[in-house]
Design a protein around this nucleic acid. Structure first.
Lengths: 227, 227
DNA sequence: CGGCACGTTGAAGGGCTTCAAGCTCTGTGG
DNA sequence: CCACAGAGCTTGAAGCCCTTCAACGTGCCG
């Protein structure tokens, strides 16, 4: 089976024997927008690597509010690999934001990889470290910044992670994203997001539509984010 | 030189040659409350492991506000080891909260450790993973919870990490901690912390004093944290 | 074309910040 | 030893940012 798993940087340096073993156990799975891959609190039995499309990690609170923990998981990035090493559970629901495909293989294989090839730890460490930095950033933002700044930052993060520039200079967020989604990423409410986007549209910073955002003036958005 | 470095779990399984090399390069450094070990943005030249006392990681914003990123770094925990692998800079100021001692050795040695003994990655990965979980928790709290809840959580986290129960059932936070400090950990202002602590004291949940907090009723504090 | 999810807009109000002034504790030096 | 300075703490008042609730648009799909 030729799964194209070898194209993922995470697996580039793996010795052939273990790589073949993973490849043999890997399923390529097509997922659709809205689909829930794994639920919050579920044991990590299978792990995933994005091939195309994208996902997010959402944490649900007792009183029914949702918080998006990560910026979107894009192709090449792993889901659950580190937790698999600790026999842990998913800290939130893995939800598909943009239809695509993901590689899936049993969590037990992760431990086999690092046993045979401990350098694999380095890649995982790098990945987790990046997410920690990002998390720290968000803690600072949530602690000190105003809502409008935080929405601006979320928008910019999206633009740089999944945006595709079109010929007219607009950065189009090539994804369906609702006011509610942005609110969960910024620690605010959908109403406030709606009002804020409306203001920005009036000032020609962005274009908006139903579950659609286009960034016109990234610089001014950045200046809002900075205060 | 007998540095007691071997007592740190992080270094338990290290092969003798590399351990000796580290031990030889390690300095035991006494630090006092208020001392700044390394500044935000400074390259990671030296790395540290707490031996006694404790530290915190504080991020400074442009407009002069401070945010405490980690709960306190307690004995046995490392500072800068992961960043040393990426030739990075300190993401915030390392500040001593309680006088004590820390081990210090050159950042370049960290790469040597993992080259010779890649399993060391596992320990680092575990450490970073714990902090990421904690960071995600705080993001959820900051996004969805009221100030009083967040102050309650900060207080409880402190109690469980550095608290020492005394005979009368009080959990004494064996550390000097100001209203301002708690505010930085909870994403609020010192005035709000002051008012909140006063309320709790009136209701016999805690005792307070200048830079001092004692927890009387951990359960009720928990119920406030939960809403 | 009707239903439904998403989005807009208004009004009310509250939680928290901000500013300000005064108080208390602690360590220090005369 | 005591006064004093300074850091930490308390308390009040004003007000704003944002949430919350509610009602009504609007776009999309079967």
């Amino acid at each position: 089976m030729h799964s194209e798993l070898g194209q993922i940087p995470l697996f580039h340096d793996l010795p052939t024997p273990i790589f073949s073993q993973i490849e043999a156990a890997t399923v390529l799975r097509a997922v659709k927008r809205g689909e829930v891959i794994r639920g919050q609190g579920q044991p990590v039995d299978q792990v995933f690597v994005m091939k195309s499309g994208c996902c997010r990690l959402v944490q649900h609170t007792k009183d029914g509010r949702d918080v998006t923990l990560t910026t979107f998981v894009v192709p090449g990035e792993p889901i659950g690999l580190v937790i698999a090493l600790n026999d842990g559970v998913y800290p939130g629901t893995i939800e598909v934001v943009k239809s695509g495909e993901l590689f899936q293989f049993p969590a037990t294989l992760v431990r086999k990889i690092v046993e045979i090839y401990p350098q694999f730890y380095e890649k995982l460490l790098h990945e987790v470290h990046l997410r920690l930095r990002e998390a720290h950033e968000r803690i600072r933002e949530l602690s000190t910044e105003r809502v409008e700044q935080r929405i601006a930052r979320s928008t910019m993060r999206l633009a740089q992670k999944i945006g595709t520039p079109s010929e007219d200079g607009t950065v189009h967020l090539n994804i369906q994203i609702s006011r509610q989604d942005l609110a969960q990423m910024s620690g605010t409410t959908l109403e406030t997001v709606s009002r804020t986007l409306k203001l920005w549209e009036r000032d020609a910073l962005i274009t908006t539509g139903r579950e659609r955002i286009g960034v016109l003036d990234l610089e001014q958005l950045a200046s809002i984010a900075e205060g």
